[in-house]
Design a protein around this nucleic acid. Structure first.
Lengths: 129, 129
DNA sequence: CTCCGTGCAAATGGTTTGCATCTTA
DNA sequence: TAAGATGCAAACCATTTGCACGGAG
């Protein structure tokens, strides 16, 4: 369902702050980016300078609690990600987060009885140990 | 290789603090536990009250940098884990970390050209969405 | 008009750092 | 005895909280 419909349906108010954060987050996630909280805050502040950090935290938490985004942590920071099941590889060579779509891995999880919401793998992307 | 041999070979000094932390960490990891930094600190302090938190941090970082343990983050805390490839499922129902050995999943990662060091999946262990 | 949501500032808590002291090799 | 480790306290920084004000419904 549309993220905004999800919120409206549950009775959450559609404030300008929420509209802006949702727009920016979805923009980034559609591009397969893995923005940190600060990435998002910076972008939001650029367009709505008066917004406060705690409001952005609140909104991101709201989005996560309502299944609009997922998050994972790395190096003390929170990263946001899209809901569609896929694999994020944090490459220990260069620290980059790489997005991989692997039906085989998803199928393997399914066979284990696991419904994955976020899959994060620390490893070596180039095959180098 | 033996964790202590790894350290000795690289020229690190085998201080009583290091011996104690290594012993306790390996004890826990052998039991398939996923201790947080604080779990480890508490256990170490119980046996060696004078040790400082920063020393334990330093030692755990040393162990991780030398491939003796791996770590992952969740809810703002760092968890330590054994090196042997396996899957950790963080169940979104109950918050527990469950250890799963799945050759199928590991094989699927291998087929994607990924050498996994730590695999963490947020999801639903009981199959419940 | 009434809550819910926001913004601010202060608090929290895990982790890191600087530095003097101590100890392993 | 000299480089490497430790312990302590302070610093750091991402996140959370409390509360008065403001705006969506």
């Amino acid at each position: 369902m549309e993220p905004l419909s999800v919120l409206k349906e549950k009775g959450y108010r559609l404030t300008p702050q929420r509209l802006e954060v949702v727009k920016i987050v979805l923009e980034k996630l559609d591009k397969r980016e893995h923005p940190t909280f600060n990435d998002i805050l910076a972008e939001v502040k650029a367009r709505m300078p008066s917004i406060s950090a705690s409001t952005v935290y609140n909104i991101l938490k709201l989005l996560e609690d309502n299944g609009v985004v997922v998050s994972f942590e790395h190096n003390g920071r929170t990263y946001y990600d899209r809901i569609e099941p896929h694999i994020n590889v944090i490459c220990l060579n260069d620290g980059k987060v790489i997005d991989i779509q692997s039906e085989e891995v998803l199928k393997a999880f399914e066979n284990e009885g696991i419904k994955p919401v976020a899959i994060v793998v620390k490893g070596y992307c180039g095959g180098k140990a």
